[in-house]
Design a protein around this nucleic acid. Structure first.
Lengths: 205, 205
DNA sequence: CCAATTTACCTAACAGTGTTCGGTTTTGAG
DNA sequence: CTCAAAACCGAACACTGTTAGGTAAATTGG
């Protein structure tokens, strides 16, 4: 018999294997030895199903890094695990990026981040903005890295330094650059925030 | 008679007005008093058409800010105009984010950024990563801000500070926070980069 | 200026999509 | 064992992108 979790994981496997546009209700049903209409006893629409999958992916994100009051460490752990969760299912990055699955779980995570930042000394408004900014970075990096083929920037890099680009290694090269770019962006951003916080502390002294 | 530019601008108008999922070849044809099949004399596929539109949007992006050797100014101008270009067509953010229209034009822009950074003293590899990072920020911000409804972070903000949130103003509030978040992220990132560059200069002295 | 050819457009269709309706089968509770 | 509720299926609807083949219009060559 079908179950919500069975459908969900079959859909996830199908998308991971064959790509997002290969997921149709009929094909998914076929995968489960069932007719397409049967799926609608468990999910109201295909969008609902996708939202549920997005939610499952987001559940892997780790927001525990704020526990000891170190906001920088908290943000780093959060951002990296967020990115890793997206990288685990490249074909679903557009879906996850387009909307946070279940509101309730997304809210809980957002609240953990927000709370951690406030506990570490950030004003509430800044905490909100920092949470949003970090998400920008992670989602933007994921879309540019995982959700498409060659990156024009990497292409430029290759054209300018052809010695560095044995053609058969271009893909891993791109991955390496994407990784390094993300880490550079994250650390530069956090460095900058450090100075912002210092300036804020100076003001209110 | 139909023309490539006529089709493109009608499609853009249609998507701006009715949303991305309202763009079908038949509806677009109707808008142009023509049958759907006729469009295929001018565009090979719908994807081609979308790529062309994405390209048109990206053409508005300003990479001239690097002219005077000030990389920080160059990046700021680029990032802001990039974001503005996406904000001008919210319904198309997913399309533009998913791939840079025509390779050729995207390459030229990427090259301008890369060249500007190198001219300002950044090592080529860093220039590539900074270009990528900045794009991450812009695209991530655009997806989170324009391409969807309510943001969970803003929701948290509202729940915690209910006095600040007359419900009827929530949308503009979200826009304001998105704006501020983007500017915060950009300036913190650039600040951090400033220190990175100083450290690099120290090394190679 | 007419003839020939290319181009633009249309009608009709194909294969596929998400979703719904009505009916049948299976399941589990009383 | 009965009966109501839930799960499943077959068929259909209204759409989608795209193509084949035919007709009309515009453009080119003589």
């Amino acid at each position: 018999m079908l179950s919500v979790t069975g459908i969900r994981s079959a859909a996830l496997a199908l998308v991971d294997r064959d790509g997002l546009e290969s997921l149709s209700m009929r094909r998914l049903a076929q995968e489960l030895d069932v007719q397409a209409a049967s799926l609608y006893s468990h999910y109201r629409t295909k969008e609902d199903l996708l939202a549920d999958i997005a939610n499952e992916i987001m559940a892997e994100v780790d927001v525990s890094g704020f526990a000891y009051g170190d906001w920088r460490h908290g943000l780093t752990v959060w951002a990296r695990s967020f990115r890793a969760a997206l990288a685990a299912h490249p074909n679903l990055v557009p879906v996850v990026a387009a909307g946070p699955g279940r509101r309730e779980a997304a809210l809980r995570r957002a609240d953990a981040v927000h709370g951690g930042l406030v506990a570490a000394g950030w004003p509430p408004r800044h905490a909100t903005m920092i949470g949003a900014s970090t998400k920008y970075l992670v989602v933007g990096a994921a879309i540019n890295s995982f959700a498409r083929g060659f990156d024009a920037d990497v292409q430029v890099y290759r054209d300018r330094y052809p010695n560095l680009s044995q053609a058969h290694r271009l893909a891993e090269h791109a991955a390496e650059i994407d990784d390094a770019s993300f880490e550079l962006a994250l650390s530069a951003f956090l460095d900058g925030l450090g100075h912002t916080l210092a300036a804020l502390d100076g003001e209110t002294r």
